[in-house]
Design a protein around this nucleic acid. Sequence first.
DNA 1: GCTGAATAAAAATTCAAT
DNA 2: ATTGAATTTTTATTCAGC
Lengths: 149, 149
Amino acid sequence: MKKKERHHLLRQLVQQETIQKQEDFVEILLNRGIDITQATISRDIKEMQLIKVPSQSGGYHYSLPPEMNFNISKKISRLMKDAFVSIDTQKEFVIIKTLPGNAFALGTLIETANYEEMFGCISGDNSVLIICRSEDQAEIFQRRMISFV
Amino acid sequence: MKKKERHHLLRQLVQQETIQKQEDFVEILLNRGIDITQATISRDIKEMQLIKVPSQSGGYHYSLPPEMNFNISKKISRLMKDAFVSIDTQKEFVIIKTLPGNAFALGTLIETANYEEMFGCISGDNSVLIICRSEDQAEIFQRRMISFV
DNA sequence: GCTGAATAAAAATTCAAT
DNA sequence: ATTGAATTTTTATTCAGC
């Protein structure tokens, strides 16, 4: 496996899984039959400018470079401005209504952004349902979304 | 000195100086007569969610949390959309013209954002002069600014 | 150039004290 | 609740091999 491919994979992993330390990368890659050491991951992280973020939930996790996240946020912001209809919470759930045909795109972006307070996210044609980690977190998430509009 | 004050100070420092490691914080605080250990800085960083960013220039430096930077970027974006007139480069210099009275605010924001490629920044009434680290970096900075508009 | 093994360096945590 | 000293854990780098 070439370095470029690995970087690509790391980029995916960091969005899908919660990577708390470099050894997590090593293990996941090992499970996939890719044999690589922490030293290499450290170098990859430096090159890709991944960052280790102290998370609200107490631990740490690796994340995409701030710039990239900024770009994702910009996209969300644009889409929210264009297609947002309404938002509401109930318990730990948040539902965002959009103009028809826009929810899926929004859901994908939200998943990519991988917000702390989010547990899961599914989207249909004109609504995105976000399941948060708690009732409080749902509030926080709602505020976050509103701030985009 | 209370923890809150220290956090406030760290927030300033991280924007003004280039902090490469936690010991840098310790030293700077010591110079100011504040006696604190790396352990405490580590805890502060966790609470404040400061991140260690692999910088383009090869090293690492601590930075404000992505969200905060995002907010700054949003402000810059808004101001650029409102008050931007023109931008040009010459050697390692970039000059941004704004509507009268807006340059100072823009300059302040740009300084806060503390971009890699920037060496220094001064602003008057309707123009901001940014001195970059090289001719190439000036190009990069120019593109960055244009992308806000 | 890229990598792993070993090591150094840096950062996080534990533990005890306040 | 906050901290420093000591320690552990994690991360970065060096060095040798390819």
